[in-house]
């Protein structure tokens, strides 16, 4: 797994961004960028090149699903790995995310191992 890539973490809760940053740093990722909703994330994606997106679902302004759809509709990011990390674990949510092109899905609460395993799979 290439840990030199630039990762965008999107969550409206600073707590979750902090937990994910701690886990990613433990794995070896150093190039981390944060956004607190989909709108801010999209602005970051327009301004710099991101190699992996890790996003919450339920956020104000622009949800993670809306962000995923914008990402998949763009030429630059249509193949960029996108990991959804969310408390929205109901079947319909998972189906919608898969249909929109999510790379993988982690349900909160999660362990550091769960995040690491999913990243191994989508960054192969």
């Amino acid at each position: 797994m290439d840990t030199s890539i630039k990762v965008l973490i999107v969550d409206d809760f600073a707590t979750m961004r902090r937990i994910l940053k701690n886990i990613l740093k433990q794995i070896g990722f150093k190039n981390l960028v944060e956004a607190d909703d989909g709108t801010s994330a999209w602005e970051i994606l327009q301004g710099q090149t991101i190699d992996l997106i890790i996003s919450d679902w339920n956020m104000p302004k622009m949800t993670g699903l809306e962000l995923l759809k914008k990402v998949r509709a763009s030429d630059q990011y249509k193949r960029t790995p996108f990991l959804m990390v969310t408390a929205e674990a109901q079947k319909q949510n998972v189906i919608e995310a898969v249909q929109a092109g999510v790379s993988n899905y982690v349900v909160k609460p999660f362990t550091a191992e769960a995040i690491s395993d999913k990243l191994e799979k989508i960054l192969k």
Binding site: F13, A14, T15, N58, A87, V107, K108
Partner: peptide
């Protein structure tokens, strides 16, 4: 912020 996120996760689970 952490209490909000914990509440969110409990609800989701």
């Amino acid at each position: 912020d952490a209490v909000g996120e914990l509440t969110n996760m409990i609800s989701g689970q």
